[in-house]
Design a protein around this nucleic acid. Structure first.
Length: 863
RNA sequence: GCGAGAGUGGCGAAAUUGGCAAACGCACUGGACUUAGGAUCCAGCGGCUUCGUGCCUUGCGGGUUCAAAUCCCGCCUCUCGCACCA
């Protein structure tokens, strides 16, 4: 055995062996317990970053651990390969998106292999392959036939920079989630998935996800945003028509004194036509349309609106209500119109004060009287209804139901439920995506591409256009086609592609039978493997990807393709990888080498000004605080990198990068290496101790410690995924071995225990640092990989200490401690505690009021 | 504003159910070995201290309890998510 630990050499060696022996390839085996472990697949951006390393290391530990526990583990990897960066790169470097993507996949694949991850590479898939998106198109057509997809001209979120539409989920505070530019509204014909049909079910099942973090479940619930209330019809004063509003506060309807409509509401211009206010209204509506939504909803908090010149009637009070169009009314929520109850809604209150509108109190809090003249804010609390015949005196919470029933009876409205969730717009005006399989014919209209003509292959013989526009609408060979229904030769293909989130909504099913050619997947394979037992990924996908996947699974279930509703049984959202940033007031973020020490303080290399250090932020290129995994692997090897990522923090928490911490991980591996290499000769031919003859003294201590460590590591990995504490447990064991080894080597039993402990150390470390463990395992005289060894079990009787430390407290403060043998009964312990000389001194003769004994742990004497 | 989570040494963090606060590691200090040490090994390492093993210490203030980092009430700070949602 080499005396020096040479990570690179052994890592490459074992990676070859694993590959050759196909250790990670799996197939369905009904005799074995299955375990589907999935990490979110990466976008092939070109290089793996530390976030990937952390995510995939966590997954790999679990996968290897489960294999050693005897499970049949599916652990696949693939590529979320469609998307815009490929197009941007194509424009910037004049290279085809496909070429760019496939080259990146090759690079990143070799990096993942270099890290020693145990993937079944036979199942690798890339979503840009026609064999993959073929089945997505197939499903789209099926959904279209069933009315689960529809086309609608609508105002959509448009990013000028990305030249595409964005889903609501992809707009963050009015900015594009990808490029950060302002999102504007644009009218376009778009395809939508009816995700809202599943809103209730998606919401309800949030409570059936015990394996998910509360945080993610809450975010999903909030995003779906269910509101229970009523729709109420307000007749117009001068026509038979009415305005419909959605409200959750129908109990306050008697206090509705005016009406607010979104500027986009189609009735606004119609109703103001011919009134003196027409021009003003038109100007307001146009101004709102120009104003981007980010401004209108966040910065510009000021409520404003204009009277549109007509009135409607409150059907409950017969009051004449002026109709306004107001900036705070949103066309996308409810009906786009709001009944304003200024006494009981803060927004309406402010609006009423500003435009001097009537405020009518209809809910009185108990024991107080509200006066509209003197109120300074709306009263939104509970109370009794007033001025609301026949509901006066009713508690407002009860009135919600009573008035909803009344509405329904008198046909003044109906009970209604409203969701924040909108249908999922999937059309993207981009090239690098899966074509939407639809043809437009002059005579037949919208015609889905028939099953036999699928897939509609994205033409690759093209070049990108400047500004990021899709070349598809200009590509005659793609655009013009025969109508599949009537044969008209001048039909046109849909040139939009699908949102890439569609691909990532079913890739986990595809992994079960990735080469299946007769459908999306082999139903039997899916029945065996799905659902995913453990899913691991970044919290940034807590809403988007996870919600879409849950929705997609329901669609598949409705088609009878799967028999479960929830795709992911357990979810782990790992924290971010962070590092200190360095920032110069003039030059912005700096790389570490741009910072020089001057007079003991960090200063900017370019201007000499003091640099702000110490802010820990998520690693990103723009903040210049990234660490390149490749360099670290070159220097320390993959195992050190893995070990550090696992040790520095529990997985769900953010990880603060520390170069010195990496050094420490490397040192630990070297220490274990030396420990083994120092004893390899002595231990040759010695069998590991297996509990035969009685042990005593140090060999017994070490044997006990070893079993205790097995227990700790097993529970830490199995029940909590707390690899950091698992590693510290092994470190303790290693420290113990280190301290005792010289004495142990003096007799045969000691040597046997030493071998047992060293081998256990290697086995326990193997999921974390697999190459390292395999090399030591071999050095200790074994053949094959530790992966094929069963995970060790501990013996309860070996764990138990014969001596127990009893802590003695007086009035809750620790005053003494003593050892007793493990079988000492309570009375003897009490007596020993009271006889303890430190305790006696403390008591100073005071009478004992109470004596509490905690079995095997502690005595508390109260005086 | 609403919702969720977090706050423990110089730092990353430990502390199954309320039962010795600070395991493990990083950094630091001293020693050994050494031509050398940025390798390795050994020891120390929350604060105060009259060095007695004495007092204090888990964001702040209360409470429950024999006993609280842990449970309850109030407050502060930070992070994340949603945000004019009718």
């Amino acid at each position: 055995m080499e005396t020096k630990y040479d990570p690179k050499q052994i890592e490459l060696k074992w990676q070859d062996i694993w590959q050759e022996r196909q250790l990670f390839q799996v197939r369905e085996d009904p005799d074995k317990e299955k375990y589907y472990l999935l990490e979110m697949f990466p976008y092939p951006s070109g290089n793996i970053h530390m976030g990937h390393v952390r995510n995939y290391t966590i997954g790999d530990v679990v996968a290897r651990y489960k294999r050693m526990k005897g499970c049949n583990v599916l652990h696949p990897m693939g590529w979320d390969a469609f998307g815009m960066p490929a197009e941007n790169a194509a424009i910037a470097h004049s290279v085809h998106p496909a070429k760019w993507t496939y080259e990146n996949i090759e690079t990143m694949k070799s990096q993942l292999k270099r890290l020693g991850f145990s993937y079944d590479w036979d199942r690798e898939l890339a979503t840009c392959q026609p064999q993959y998106y073929h089945w997505e198109q197939w499903l789209f057509v099926k959904m279209l036939e069933r009315g689960m997809v529809y086309r609608k001209r609508s105002s959509v979120n448009w990013c000028q920079d990305c030249q595409t539409v964005l889903a609501n989920e992809q707009v963050e505070a009015g900015l594009c989630w990808r490029c950060g530019n302002v999102v504007v509204q644009k009218e376009l014909d778009q395809w939508f998935f009816r995700i809202t049909d599943y809103a209730d079910d998606l919401l309800e099942y949030c409570d059936n996800l015990p394996g998910w973090p509360d945080k993610v479940v809450t975010m999903q619930k909030n995003w779906i945003g269910k509101s229970v209330g009523a729709e109420i019809y307000f007749p117009l004063e001068k026509s038979g028509d009415h305005i419909s509003v959605f409200t959750t506060r129908q109990d306050t309807v008697y206090g509705a004194t005016f009406m607010c409509m979104a500027p986009e509401h189609p009735m606004v211009l119609k109703l103001s036509a011919g009134t003196p206010q027409e021009a003003e209204v038109r100007a307001f509506v146009e101004r709102m349309a120009r104003q981007d939504k980010a401004k209108r909803t966040s910065e510009d908090y000021e409520k404003e609106g204009v009277f549109i010149g007509t009135y409607c009637i409150n059907p409950f009070t017969k009051r004449r209500m002026p109709i306004f169009t107001a900036n705070f009314a949103l066309m996308e929520y409810g009906t786009g119109a709001v009944m304003a109850v200024p006494a009981h809604d803060q927004r309406d209150f402010e609006f009423a004060r500003k435009y001097d509108l009537e405020i009518v109190v209809v809910i009185q809090p108990e024991g107080a009287t509200l006066d509209p003249e003197t109120m300074t804010e709306a009263y939104v609390g509970e109370g009794l209804l007033v001025r609301s015949p026949p509901f006066d005196g009713l508690k407002n919470v009860k009135a919600l139901d009573a008035i909803a029933d009344y509405l329904q009876d008198k046909e003044l409205g109906k009970r209604a439920i409203n969701f924040r969730l909108r249908d999922w717009g999937i059309s993207r005006q981009r090239y690098w995506g899966a074509p939407i399989p639809v043809v437009y014919c002059e005579t037949c209209g919208v015609v889905p591409v028939p099953e036999k003509d699928l897939p509609v292959v994205l033409p690759e013989e093209t070049h990108m256009l400047e500004g990021g526009r899709s070349p598809l609408p200009t590509l005659e060979s793609f655009l013009t086609t025969q109508c599949p229904r009537c044969g008209n030769a001048r039909a046109r293909r849909e040139t939009d592609t699908m949102d890439t989130f569609v691909e990532s909504s079913w890739y986990f099913e595809r992994y079960c039978s990735p080469r299946h050619v007769e459908g999306m997947f082999d139903k039997e394979a899916v029945r065996y493997w799905m659902p995913v037992d453990q899913y691991i990924g970044g919290v940034e996908h807590a809403i988007l990807h996870l919600l879409y996947s849950r929705y997609f699974t329901r669609v598949l279930k409705d088609f009878g393709l799967v028999d479960y509703k929830e795709p992911f049984t357990r979810l782990l959202t790992q924290g971010m990888v962070c590092k200190e940033t360095k920032k110069c007031p003039d030059h912005g973020f700096l790389y570490p080498e741009e910072v020089v020490q001057r007079e003991g303080r960090p200063t900017c290399k370019h201007c000499g000004r003091p640099v702000e250090v110490g802010r820990i932020e998520k690693m990103s290129k723009s903040k210049k605080n990234v660490v390149d995994p490749n360099l670290l692997m070159e220097k320390y090897g993959a195992d050190t990198l893995r070990l550090f990522c696992l040790f520095a923090a529990p997985p769900e928490r953010d990880l603060d990068w520390s170069d010195q911490g990496v050094e420490g991980a490397y040192r630990f591996l070297n220490k274990v290496w030396r420990l083994v290499s120092d004893h390899v000769e002595v231990l040759k031919g010695i069998e590991p101790y297996d509990g035969g003859q009685e042990l005593d003294g140090e060999s017994k201590d070490l044997y006990r410690k070893t079993h205790q460590t097995i227990k700790r590591v097993t529970t830490d990995i199995d029940t909590r995924f707390h690899f950091n504490t698992a590693i510290s447990a092994v470190m303790e064991l290693v420290n113990t071995i280190q301290a005792l080894r010289v004495d142990l080597c003096s007799d045969a039993t000691g040597c046997a225990v030493l071998r047992f402990s060293l081998e256990t150390t290697v086995v326990l470390l193997s999921p974390l640092v697999p190459h390292f463990a395999d090399e030591l395992w071999e050095a200790l005289g074994h053949t094959g990989s530790v992966l094929e060894v069963f995970w060790p079990t501990y013996r309860q009787e070996a764990i138990e200490e014969d001596q127990i430390l009893i802590v003695v407290q007086v009035n809750g403060k620790v005053r003494s401690r003593f050892q007793v043998s493990a079988d000492t009964d309570e009375e003897r312990i009490k007596a020993a505690a009271l006889a303890d000389e430190r305790v006696v001194a403390r008591l100073a003769g005071r009478p004992v009021k109470k004596l509490i004994v905690v079995q095997n742990k502690l005595v508390n004497i109260v005086v």
